[in-house]
Amino acid sequence: MSALLEVTDVRTWFPVADGAFRNGTQTVKAVDGVSFTMRAGEALGLAGESGCGKTTLGRTIVRLTEPTGGRVKLDGLDVTALEGEGLRKSRAQFQMIFQDPQASLNPRMTVLETLVEALQAHRAVPAAELRGRVLKLLEQVGLSESALDQYPHQFSGGQRQRIAIARALAVEPKLIVADEPVSALDVSIRAQILTLLNELRARLGLSLIFIGHDLAVLRGVCDRIAVMYLGRIVELGPARDVVDRPLHPYTQALISAVPVPDPERERSRQRIVLEGDPPSPLSPPSGCSFHPRCAKKSERCVSEVPPLVERDGRSVACHVV
């Protein structure tokens, strides 16, 4: 099957002022050379800790952030080359859902107004059909008609996230990038939203990029997982394989740090406790950026950046593995 999304050597760098009273600038390489492809209907998880660039990568793919270099192709269309009206029109193809629906919904607009605005953004929908279309959207995300004239603050966190999902669906996108869509929700509500996203993906043939830090969640929802560290993908493979048998030393440490909700297994686990904090993206280490914290490093890791190499459906960027 041909790829729906092709991401090739994407780089997103940000200039940062070099101290308050100096004129120089430094560069944060938030995303630094990321490539992968996605099939239609696939769910890809982007995992990693804060500052690894997963959100910036997601925003770059939907052109909410301008890439410094590289190319993003969605269904043959070069998203990175689009400008002005062409870019605006293409936005019907890809949508984004954010972590905090309280912040991404307009507090002064009712659910009806919010969804009508989204419906009309890209298509001329006859006024007579609008209400019916909005009701269908609400039904898809499991909300009732009584929600129509209510404002975001009248809903709970989980329901607000449903509204945000309905708004994303309104333009009938091919790809949805969901940035930590359940992190702000309680555990008992989380699964409701995850199940909803899964159902919608199956029913509408959507592709989903799921950005999250919780590997247990990603393992349950995604087909494949990409693990990022300091702007690069260090490991990419089928979700179960990556979590159950991680290859990259960083993935291994990351997974061993996730607590397991079972006292016996939790206490008998071998935990790889990493020393220190992730390095500053302003001055990333030479070679493999994980080498200062890696127990398996060799001399080569200090000098040479390891490329992401594929073998048997799994990709790893490590000289040692």
């Binding site: 709970s156 329901q159 309680d186 555990v187 008992s188 509500i189 247990a216 969640v217 349950g220 996730v258």
Partner: peptide
């Protein structure tokens, strides 16, 4: 019981999504 079921387990053999219906 419901809370335990809805907590995702990294080591679960069959990862499943169980939620508690309704709202607090």
């Amino acid at each position: 019981r419901a809370l335990l079921r809805s907590t995702p387990d990294l080591q679960a053999v069959e990862p499943q999504l169980v939620s508690i219906r309704g709202q607090p």
